Structures are given as C-alpha cells and as structure tokens.
Amino acid sequence: MKKILIIGSGGAGKSTLARELGTILGLEVIHLDAWYWNPGWIETPKTEWQSIIQDLTRRESWIMDGNYGGTLDLRLSVADTVIFLDFPRLLCLSRVIKRRFMYAGQSRPDMASDCPERLNWEFLKYIWSYPIIRRPGILEKLSQVRPNQQVIILCKPTEVRDFLQNILQIQIYTIDFYERK
C-alpha cells in the first residue's frame, strides 16, 4: 500500500483514519479539504483544482482522504488501495454535529486555515442523501477497479479499529522479522 485513497460520507471518519494509518505506515497524509478550501471558505477554481490533484497524485506515496467527485476518477486511476467508509447516515450526522461543537470557532486540523468549523443544511442534506445519491455510483466505480488495486469497504467503527490493528500487527511483524536477520 503506497497510494491509499480514503472516501466516504462526511462524518465517516476519513481524516481520522488517514492520520492513524499515516502514523502506522509512515506515509504522507493529504487531506483534500485543506487543499481545496482557501481562507474564508473560498473554493479553489475547477481548473486549478484539477491541476492540484494531478500534482498530488504524482507523488511517490500518500494517503489521501476526501470525496470531491469531480476528481475521483483521476485519484482512483492511480491509487493502489481504496478504503470506502460505508457508514450509516445517522452515525455520520451525529459525528458532524459533535465535530461542530468540538471545533466551534476554529479550523479542524485537516482543514485549511481560517475555515472555522461550520454546519449548514446543505451539508446535512448531503450526508443524509449520500447513501441514496452518491453511494451507488461509488460502488459502481469500485467494482471496475483494476485487478492490482485493492478495495476495502468498512461499514462500522469496529471494522476500522480491527483494520488498523491488523495493519499495526503486520508492521510490527515485518519490523521484527527484519531485525532478526
């Protein structure tokens, strides 16, 4: 796993998983929200965004979290591993509401500076409709990945914890194996 793409609904825990996996694997973590948003919640123009994504995906290795459907095909074409957090909408909604209070008046660590945490109806509707509107298209795209690409679908927080624990155990075993030589 050298180029890992993490996707899923808002509030699924993409950024948290990316940070934890980055620590375990020692890979650069790229939070797309931090690259897309400019101070004051100003969006990056589409042509500039495409160029940024092309540059980011050319890096040798990374863990990249974020949706941004307009660039998903490009990111899928270069990722060797895709992790889809396919969590229930109520869990995702509760997490973004909690996050809103946790980071009230400040920017999250995975967000661009001067973009204080906010919550609006548009985002809540996006999360609520995600399983109906976005999920089928994502599953279709994931069904078409190349044979050398790995797709991991995690549906519950316990599956994420188990996944991270397994990766950690593999890393520990690998380090121990090479130290014994």
Rank of each mutant, 00 (worst) to 15 (best):
Y103H: 10
Y103E: 12
Y103G: 04
Y103R: 10
A104G: 05
G105W: 06
G105T: 04
G105H: 08
Q106V: 01
Q106A: 09
Q106L: 09
S107V: 01
S107K: 03
R108A: 02
P109I: 01
D110V: 02
D110Y: 15
A112F: 05
A112P: 13
A112H: 10
D114F: 11
D114W: 03
C115A: 13
P116M: 09
P116N: 07
E117M: 02
E117W: 05
E117R: 11
E117T: 05
R118G: 07
R118M: 15
R118N: 13
L119P: 06
L119C: 07
L119G: 12
L119S: 11
N120I: 12
W121F: 04
E122F: 11
E122H: 11
E122L: 08
E122M: 09
F123Q: 07
F123Y: 14
F123L: 14
L124M: 14
L124I: 08
K125C: 06
K125G: 08
K125V: 07
I127K: 06
S129I: 07
Y130S: 06
Y130P: 01
I133P: 07
I133M: 10
R134G: 05
R134V: 15
R134M: 13
R135D: 00
R135N: 13
P136D: 15
P136C: 10
P136L: 13
P136T: 09
G137Y: 12
G137T: 01
I138K: 02
I138Q: 09
I138H: 04
L139F: 10
L139P: 03
L139E: 07
L139D: 08
E140M: 11
E140K: 07
K141F: 08
K141N: 07
K141R: 14
L142H: 05
L142P: 00
L142C: 08
L142Q: 09
L142Y: 08
S143R: 12
S143Q: 09
Q144G: 00
Q144I: 00
Q144W: 01
V145R: 11
R146E: 13
P147V: 00
N148H: 12
N148S: 10
N148E: 15
N148C: 08
Q149M: 06
Q150I: 06
V151T: 00
V151P: 02
V151R: 01
V151N: 05
I153P: 03
I153W: 02
I153A: 06
L154G: 01
L154V: 04
L154I: 02
L154D: 01
C155D: 08
C155Q: 13
K156M: 05
P157M: 11
P157K: 11
T158L: 03
T158A: 11
T158N: 09
T158I: 02
E159R: 05
V160L: 04
R161N: 00
R161D: 10
R161A: 03
R161Q: 08
R161I: 02
F163E: 03
F163G: 01
F163P: 07
L164A: 03
L164V: 00
Q165T: 06
Q165S: 05
Q165R: 10
Q165C: 00
Q165H: 02
Q165G: 01
N166M: 04
N166T: 00
N166R: 05
